[in-house]
């Protein structure tokens, strides 16, 4: 029997600072938001999704990601903002949460930033209870305030599975 030892996952730390993590940052409205770059698989231009009947309004539908069917969620609708029409800058950030791959539709992405994790502060109660759970903290980087997002809550699979009920 040929047995090969399972190789440990090599998670290379791309950060220069030991306590900094890379975040993908983007604008929604006037605010800057960030998601952990490690969770992001790719960024692709938005192609219209196929509507899924009876799905919540923030689920735009499903798209074809190299033969896999993934759902696309509209970030603005999810945060209770009116959606914007498709532009050339409109993108889908493909991210993996809990073994499931999702797409998040954004108006644009701006940058990748090193976020010093020790400077992250708990979210102040600025947002409503409902949107509060989407946020995992805020951090001041230079002159910008970046709101860190909790993708697990945004893609909320539990809520989606009520569809099936």
């Amino acid at each position: 029997m040929t047995l090969t030892k399972p190789t440990a996952e090599t998670t290379e730390t791309t950060t220069t600072d030991a306590n900094a993590e890379k975040y993908l940052v983007f604008q929604i409205g006037n605010e800057t938001y960030g998601v952990p770059l490690l969770q992001v698989q790719e960024i692709r231009t938005y192609t219209p999704a196929t509507r899924v009947p009876n799905a919540p309004n923030y689920v735009l539908g499903v798209i074809n990601l190299r033969g896999n069917i993934i759902a696309v969620i509209d970030a603005r609708t999810r945060f209770g903002l009116p959606p914007l029409p498709d532009e050339e800058s409109t993108v889908v950030v493909v991210a993996q949460v809990n073994d499931k791959v999702f797409g998040l539709r954004l108006d644009s992405v701006s940058d990748v930033m090193d976020i010093p994790m020790e400077q992250v502060q708990p979210t102040p109660p600025i947002a409503s209870e409902a949107t509060q759970r989407f946020l995992s903290g805020v951090v001041q980087v230079g002159e910008r305030v970046v709101i860190l997002l909790n993708l697990r809550e945004i893609f909320d699979i539990d809520a989606l599975s009520q569809l099936a009920a």
């Binding site: 196929t50 499903v62 033969g67 896999n68 069917i69 759902a71 499931k100 999702f102 569809l163």
Partner: peptide, 25 residues
């Protein structure tokens, strides 16, 4: 499968990809 990355959708057995790359349920 719709379930693999999303969830079961009542009334639909799955999805497929059409010749133009779009998804159809």
């Amino acid at each position: 499968s719709l379930e693999e990355n999303f969830t079961r959708v009542p009334g639909f057995a799955g999805a497929t990809i059409l010749g133009d790359g779009r998804v159809a349920l």
